[in-house]
């Protein structure tokens, strides 16, 4: 298994939702990894679509970089709907 690479598995629970990371598994190649993922992570009909990605292919931000990575978004409050006051009586906005 050291020699069978690690794959990260993402499952789309149902149409309209994004794929969500559910765990990992070992397989020699992508095709085998997909089949194993189907068997392991959708035993109870948890998904309509599965992705497998070689764990080695994922680049991740370091938690220590958190400030540099994510804080710039902190002052962009206009991205959040609560930034906009809604006149009284206006619904479904």
């Amino acid at each position: 298994m050291a020699d069978q690479p690690l794959w990260e598995v993402f499952v789309r629970a149902r149409r309209g939702l994004s794929h969500v990371h559910v765990g990992s598994l070992h397989a020699a190649d992508a095709e085998h990894a997909l089949r194993n993922a189907r068997d392991l992570y959708t035993r109870r009909q948890e998904g309509v679509s599965v992705w497998v990605v070689p764990a080695a292919a994922i680049s991740a931000s370091a938690p220590e970089d958190k400030d540099a990575f994510f804080d710039p978004a902190e002052d962009k409050v206009y991205r959040h709907p609560t930034f906009y006051p809604v006149p009284e009586g206006v619904e479904h906005l």
Binding site: M1, L25, H26, A27, R35, N36, D39, L40, R43
Partner: peptide, 11 residues
């Protein structure tokens, strides 16, 4: 031969 296969054969 490996755990993944235990799951597959049981299916």
């Amino acid at each position: 031969p490996q755990l993944e296969e235990d799951v597959a054969l049981a299916n």
